[in-house]
Amino acid sequence: MSRNISASVERRIYAESMGRCMNPECKVELFKESGDIMEKAHIIPYCDTKDNSFENLIILCPNCHTNFDKNGAFSVEDVKTWKRIREDEFVSFFSKEYDTFEDLKSEIVPLLLHNQAIFENYYLEAKRELWDISEGKILSNNRILRSILKQNSKLIQNHSEKSYSNLAIVQKFLLHIDEFEVTRLSKEKLRHVLFPVEINSLFGIEPLKGSFLPSVESIESLIAVLQDNGQFETIVLGVDNPYIQIKKDSISEKIYLNDTPRLRQMYYDNNCFRQVNVRFDSLNFALKVIKSRGLKFDFLDTNNLKEIIVNGVKIVFIYEYCLSKVKLFQLSPEEKCVILNLHNWNGTSCISAEAYELAKEIKVKLLTMDEFYGYINSINHKR
């Protein structure tokens, strides 16, 4: 009878080992830079049972394998117990529930980085032999990642619409893990669910250039939280990749505002999701126009990104389909300030005639986006 072990059984025992010898007194790392030292051992000899089942197989290092098979240092019951101990260890350690996403992140990131290093150094560098060896370590790391993420899914931002959901990203990653395990030993290794790069964004490993989340108010709320935590340094807007710069544990870091999964998670963690009053992409575009004219702007308060000073002029940004007299009155604008309606879908009708009349009375200037370009040019010429 063939001693060949089925692919499904091999996957299970590789994953069960978590990359370490199953002897609880040994636990030596089985994936070395020099190669894979794992050995498959039959608990009850194959010649006696012809048994290649998962229950009769165990992963050991060469020393423990020799001591079991040839030196009689361990009994069959000892080795069976090792499998139960490893299962209990796995359940105990990796069923832990974390209190915060940051705690979860501290466990997840090293595993993701390890997998990334193996992939980049071996697969992308076409070192096929080393890649084949090290895939087992990825399999082991993935089993840990799967368990931790499933146990702590409540910490991941979620939305009923998958395109707005970080949990949907995690679920795709888990599907990728399962497919990676299933196809590891196949010759073709055709994988349809590739590693979702959004995972690296979510856990702060590598920013992703996504779309802007619409709410300026959510960004303002996040800035207030970061200020309270002593982490906020500055915000840079009016550029292609606007960002908030924070400082944590003496390390400065840029949080890009188009790094969608990460920003979405930060909003969720800090309860910063706010209804959209002013759209961020429209605000950032207007600020880019100002910078493109060689002008500088300053925020009156970083907790309010909708008010700036340009050449001594206060500009207030709003986003209204049609600015009414009532809405203008509610804004209570200061004399000589400029109010720019970023909502230009309604053309010249985005500001009502009554609002223009009130603006004359209270001595403020109202602008549509079309009028804004000429106004900024006029400011630039007066410098």
Results as ranks from 00 to 15, higher is better:
237 L>W: 05
63 N>Y: 07
271 N>L: 13
162 K>G: 11
3 R>Y: 00
166 N>E: 13
229 N>P: 00
149 L>D: 07
347 G>D: 07
369 M>W: 08
315 I>S: 02
383 R>A: 06
141 N>A: 06
54 F>A: 11
178 D>V: 02
333 P>A: 01
12 R>E: 11
172 K>H: 13
89 E>S: 08
211 S>I: 10
278 V>G: 01
182 V>M: 06
64 C>W: 08
209 K>N: 09
191 R>N: 08
246 I>W: 01
39 E>Y: 01
283 L>T: 03
125 E>V: 03
52 N>K: 15
250 S>M: 11
65 H>W: 10
103 D>L: 11
80 K>P: 12
290 I>D: 03
186 S>C: 04
248 K>C: 04
30 L>E: 05
115 N>A: 02
224 A>V: 07
372 F>E: 03
220 E>Y: 12
382 K>V: 07
312 G>N: 10
21 C>N: 02
143 R>F: 03
305 L>N: 11
296 K>G: 06
303 N>E: 10
193 V>Q: 10
116 Q>A: 03
279 R>L: 05
381 H>D: 15
201 S>Y: 13
340 L>W: 04
8 S>A: 10
58 I>G: 09
31 F>I: 00
209 K>T: 07
367 L>F: 06
215 S>W: 15
92 S>F: 14
204 G>P: 11
78 D>E: 12
232 F>T: 06
141 N>T: 03
178 D>P: 02
246 I>A: 04
339 I>K: 01
268 Y>M: 10
256 Y>Q: 08
330 Q>D: 07
164 Y>A: 14
347 G>E: 05
75 S>N: 05
193 V>Y: 15
